[in-house]
Design a protein around this nucleic acid. Structure first.
Length: 644
RNA sequence: GCCCAUGUAGCUCAGUCGGUAGAGCACAUCCUUGGUAAGGAUGAGGUCACCGGUUCAAAUCCGGUCGUGGGCUCCA
């Protein structure tokens, strides 16, 4: 008999050789039905795997990340069978699960088309209906080589070459008429893979290396039931509706035009208004929080970037230098060297630290054409940057303060679900081991002391220091990386930064880079998608629009506009001779928070009929009441609202 | 940068087999004075992204460039 420990700590006894399927069945019928795989110790196995020794186990279902991985991996095999059957001669590369779904890379006799996807899906459905079991078979490497050699699966042979030396045996998984080289594990049978959807076709290099043959990748996603697939489809549609590129055009917020250049953003008046609101708020909060504002130029002598090292390690992201009176100059990809020059311009005493210098600094980075994407990936953007120069004994408190500051800023924009990751020392790093430990400790403590949880990205730090990255979750649950807090052991050395300590000697300060929103462009894009274009009152360029029912009340409407403007409300008047339904429709599509319908009734009682965006009727209000309503919402979330 | 797709009116998009261009919305003018998501009429608006090639003839076929989209790659 062997003892298996369940996740809840309970121990059950089974005969040696018991399978995951048996164990699941012994626990409950529901679990047996949902079980996809089993975790034995820290290895995930097929449900048919015989367990021969005591171990902690966990039955994996679709509700666990590992269960989903297995499910999607099996789905990739399912798709591969369909593709090879529909398009014989298609060679197989690899087909792993990904964050949400799976893909498989193929080398087909001809490129796939969108129509192909439907054919593949149809065949996949047939294979699911077969409910064919996934069967694992171990074989020698030589045997595997022969199998795939016969089938002229050159990519599989390459994988086998790589495995050689690492493994003694190869494993094959087959189901229905399909067999693939695979480590596994897999779900018990194709019948589990009920609901799936093939999403897109993309090019991808074999082994992700440019220069290698380009393969055709098909992305797909699958779920154990229809409902979850429908939810997924709905989520995608919702995301599409919120796409900041469409909303940006529809609401006249910004544009990126061929005439000015790819990846370069034009802020139109309404977008610029919102940006200005964000900036004003940002400046105010920084000044209240011990930062001093600085400005720096957009270009500098190339020499500066030599000293900072950017011409070396950052060259591929910089625009080419240009000549200024025989002096090469460089468009700035970062703000830090300028802040450092400010630091160096004076003798710094320990008494004066920390220095916290913040700047909305516009930087230009060369991004390859193919990666540009709306406001999310651009070539010119404004970082909400700051650099903190401090003593070692100040580090931990500084980091903590930055973290608090950051979270409060996110809260003001309605982002309260923030996830934190800590990236530690990479293999290739500069600086002393002790410094790294100190820095990582400081970052860790700052997070832990605030009772926050965090993920560790081992080795994910920059070569010059560890960092914290902050991700905000938007209204439909998507995470976006915004903030970053990074230690830098590199630049203080390169620029030989010092301060005079209590001992009268020179000491090296610690430098921390930080951005909260990241880039204004990107953050604006996130805000647009988060709010689906319906900006909160404090950011909305137009907070309300007066809609006159007939031209007879236009005088009253105009008077109303003056009164509301005097009361500090951003209000526009639509007094065109159009029907009220038409005006409402337009105001709705413009996503103006409040519509004020005025006709004879309102004109006589000196009031407004308030309709909120989306259709909610807030009834009739006096001018003062409505102005009060706007004032109560005219500030960042959680901020005390300033009365005009 | 690479692969695939794509670029037609301000926007969304038709345009068949190569025969010199269309709709809806938006815009302008006029009519309509209408109470919570599209009232009507008329009109104007295009070097079919750009450059080159094939052809009697190119929005259409071919090549290149640029932009955009989905990916890949990269990401101090």
């Amino acid at each position: 008999m062997i003892k298996l420990t369940l996740p809840d700590g309970s121990v059950r006894e089974y005969a040696a050789g018991v399978t995951g399927a048996d164990v699941a069945a012994s626990i409950g019928a529901r679990l047996a039905k949902d079980a996809l795989a089993i975790k034995v110790g820290d290895r995930v196995r097929d449900l048919s795997w015989p367990i021969t020794a005591d171990a902690p186990i966990q039955i994996l279902t679709f509700d666990s990340p590992e269960g989903r991985e297995v499910f999607w991996h099996s789905s990739a095999h399912l798709m591969a069978q369909a593709v090879t059957e529909v398009l014989p001669g298609t060679k197989l590369a690899i087909g792993p699960p990904i964050e949400e779904g799976f893909y498989y890379d193929f080398d087909p006799p001809r490129p796939f088309t969108t129509d192909d996807l439907e054919k593949f899906e149809k065949r996949m459905g047939e294979i699911v209906a077969e409910d064919a079991p996934f069967v694992r078979k171990e074989c020698s490497l030589a045997e595997a080589r022969k199998t795939f050699g016969d089938r002229q699966e050159k990519y599989k042979l390459e994988i086998l070459e790589k495995i050689e030396g690492e493994e003694q045996q190869a494993s094959m998984y087959s189901h229905s008429r399909f067999q693939d080289l695979c480590r596994g594990p897999h779900v018990p049978s194709t019948g589990r893979l009920k609901s799936f959807k093939l999403l897109s076709i993309a090019g991808a290099y074999w082994r992700d290396a440019e220069g290698n043959p380009q393969l055709q990748r098909i992305y797909g996603v699958s779920f154990p039931d229809k409902k979850r697939l429908e939810e997924f489809v709905q989520r995608r549609e919702e995301a599409k509706k919120r796409d900041h590129r469409h909303l940006g055009k529809q609401l006249k917020l910004f544009s990126i035009q061929e005439g000015s250049g790819a990846g370069l953003v034009l802020w139109h008046p309404k977008g610029a208004f919102i940006r200005r609101k964000i900036e004003e708020f940002w400046y105010k909060r920084h000044q209240e929080s011990g930062y001093e504002l600085v400005y720096s130029p957009h270009i500098a002598r190339l020499k500066l970037w030599d000293v900072s090292g950017h011409t070396g390690f950052y060259a591929e992201n910089m625009f080419p230098p240009f000549d200024v009176e025989n002096n090469p100059h460089q468009l700035k990809p970062m703000n830090c060297p300028f802040h450092i020059l400010i630091y160096q311009s004076d003798l710094q005493s320990y008494r004066d630290l920390p220095k916290r210098w913040a700047e909305m600094g516009t930087v230009y980075r060369f991004e390859r054409g193919g990666v540009l994407h709306g406001l999310f990936r651009v070539r010119g953007f404004t970082q909400d940057d700051a650099h903190i120069f401090c003593r070692r004994d100040q580090v931990e408190e500084e980091i903590g303060t930055v973290l608090d500051f950051c979270l409060s800023i996110y809260g003001a924009f309605g982002f309260n679900d923030v996830s934190i990751s800590l990236s530690t020392r990479p293999a290739k790093a500069i600086g002393e081991e002790a410094d790294w430990q100190m820095a990582e400790e400081a970052l860790r403590n700052a997070i832990v002391r605030r009772g926050k949880t965090y993920k560790v990205d081992e080795g994910g730090g920059a070569f010059y220091g560890p960092k914290i990255d902050l991700h905000v979750k938007d209204a439909i649950g998507r995470p976006w990386q915004c903030g970053t807090i990074q230690f830098d052991f590199n630049l203080p050395e390169r620029f030989d930064l010092t301060y005079v300590g209590t001992d009268g000697k020179k000491h090296r300060p610690v430098m921390v880079h930080r951005a909260l929103l990241g880039s204004l462009e990107r953050f604006f894009g996130i805000l647009i998608e988060h709010h689906a274009g319906v900006f909160p009152v404090w950011l909305a360029p137009e907070q309300a629009i007066i809609l006159s029912v007939t031209e007879k009340v236009n005088d009253y409407a105009a008077q109303l506009q003056r009164e509301l403007e005097t009361a500090g409300v951003r209000v526009r008047l639509d007094d065109r001779p159009e029907k009220i339904g038409m005006k409402i429709r337009e105001a709705e599509t413009l996503k103006i928070p409040y519509m004020l319908v005025v006709g004879d009734r309102e004109s006589q009682s000196h009031s407004v009929a308030v309709r909120a965006h989306g259709g909610q009727d807030l009834g009739t209000k006096s001018v003062a009441e409505f102005a009060e309503l706007i004032h109560s919402q005219d500030g960042p979330a959680g901020d005390s609202v300033t009365q005009p």
